[in-house]
Design a protein around this nucleic acid. Structure first.
Lengths: 193, 193
DNA sequence: TTCGGCCGACCGTCCGGACGGTCTTGCGAA
DNA sequence: TTCGCAAGACCGTCCGGACGGTCGGCCGAA
């Protein structure tokens, strides 16, 4: 056997898991939280129900994995935005602004999927989104130690949360012009005074 | 029969409906969205399942009524806060700040119930929260015509949304000190410049 | 031949909703 | 005033279907 084959095999296993997670998100995005069943997920992933349960021993395990992957993606995305900001006071706060109001195309596509993971996990059991709470606390800690007045930094964080969570519920999303204006307004809070 | 008795009867009917709606919210608050079944709601309301279905012909009808009541409460609450703000530019924007960061004790107690209605309705069918979307649009319209730069006003609205929705998911809630600091920071965006 | 990923039939449970019945209430006729 | 009756609030049971999860077996790769 070629080493490549082993790699392929290993990747296939991993791909199946990822494919199932992708499928679960797709079901929620396209048909709503209430349609997220093991059968529907398996069908969308091109796998039998037994096959799905081979990878995730229960629905809760599936949702836990969904949340973990979501948090990892959010963390990586946010950290990348932080890295793109110049060092100095207000760095993390400005990163919040950029993350919420200057989403990359990939981020834009992923937002709905992150929302799907958050909503479905929370609907099944609010305790499942504990990793999200921890990640939020991590960002709050960075924000609080950002060299800005705490009120300013947390106001910006709240606004970023609001932009994202309003999109989660499909309540509202600013158009490009308004996004730039909001960005400018929040920017006024993100500089040392 | 006394006239009072007729009134009592009429009130009882109304109370039963309200009691069922209260019970549904209680079930969600105490046991999560996934525990919201007609049976559980009926039991919590002290009514049989048949009795519940007499007042709400389907689960969807129950959730629709829940959302309608929630929106009416939010609208009344917000309008009251607006009325308490002095007239002039930025009035609605400052009302957003007060609504999110200076909740009355009653508001505080109701926030969890509003969250329960929002989450359970959205989980069942995202289309059910359409009234919430309309109410949000109404507030946006008021905000946009508030005599402030649109970016500033919408930044404040986003922050208010973020405070509330973060509480919906149990992600975070600022303590009293931080709330005052955030209020002050947002206040800087809510005055004509 | 062994092993692990995967299949698909099956089970027990729960849920939404239907239905027929009971009791109280309001009201018009006698 | 009283009696009968229609209406509506509410009850308790039942059913069809969907869902989460189990289990024994299949099959290709090592």
């Amino acid at each position: 056997m070629l080493p490549g084959a082993m790699l392929d095999h290993s990747n296939e296993i991993r791909d199946t898991r990822e494919r199932i997670l992708d499928a679960a998100e797709s079901v929620v995005v396209e048909r709503g939280v209430s349609a997220l069943s093991l059968e529907a997920t398996a069908a969308a992933a091109g796998v039998s129900k037994g096959g799905l349960l081979h990878h995730f021993r229960s629905k809760e395990a599936l949702l836990t994995a969904l949340v973990e992957r979501m948090v990892a993606e959010m963390r990586a995305g946010f950290d990348a935005v932080v890295a793109a900001e110049p060092e100095g006071p207000g760095r993390h706060t400005r990163a919040c602004i950029a993350w919420a109001l200057r989403p990359t195309p990939q981020q834009r596509a992923r937002d709905l999927r992150l929302a799907a993971a958050l909503l479905s996990a929370h609907a099944h059991d609010p305790a499942l989104i504990e990793p999200v709470r921890r990640e939020h606390a991590r960002i709050r800690a960075a924000i609080a130690d950002d060299g800005l007045p705490p009120g300013h930094a947390h106001a910006v964080l709240a606004a970023a949360d609001g932009i994202f969570l309003a999109k989660v519920f499909g309540l509202w999303s600013p158009d490009e012009t308004l996004a730039r204006a909001i960005e400018a307004a929040l920017g006024r809070l993100a500089v040392p005074c």
